[in-house]
Design a protein around this nucleic acid. Sequence first.
DNA 1: GCGACAG
DNA 2: ATCTTGTCGC
Length: 218
Amino acid sequence: MVWPRSAEEAEKVQEDLRGLVRAEGDGREPRLVAGLDVAYGDDLIAAAVTVLDASSLEVVESSVVVDRPVFPYVPGLFAFRELPALLDALRALETVPDLLVCDGHGLAHPRRFGLACHLGILTGVPSMGVGKTFLVGEHVEPGRERGSWTPLVHEGETVGRTVRTQDGIRPVYVSSGHLIDLPAAARRVLELSPSYRLPETTRSADRLSRSALREASG
DNA sequence: GCGACAG
DNA sequence: ATCTTGTCGC
């Protein structure tokens, strides 16, 4: 796979692929939900994927790969930094997840093509984004109770939602990646976050990526 | 021109 | 993302 070498090339890739995104699902409940996250070291990155049973939230399979970053971190071009390693980790999986929960945004992106969209298009697997911090979109604070939410509006379009996953805790930013609609994505993040701010998918992948990085370096 | 800016 | 102790609060 040819990878962009400059920000200009990367933006063109996003412009070329954005039209393929379908923010609609088939309405079926996912059985296997995957969490993806990347940890950073001095000159190493560890990309982890954990596959959870959607009902029990137990991890049924996982994969992690340590690699070298091939693209710098640039807001809006984040996917080009994490995608290569994440794709490798996904390929090593025996099971095929029904949904990919990404650590970052999907449609809530300057060009409507964040990491979650990119990953969904490249894999053909439904995907959604759960960002810990804001990237784009005007919004107001949701109510303080778990479950309350407000729309994220960017350039006149609803691109995502702020969702309060725990009472009185900072909300997360949810958006569609590919093959899932926004209400379904928002519902999913709540089901995946019974006890903490972040979904269990992200939490398990985060633990795995960090331990792999420690093991690889020092 | 001056900020803002996923991880 | 990561560097990092104590500390406020349930």
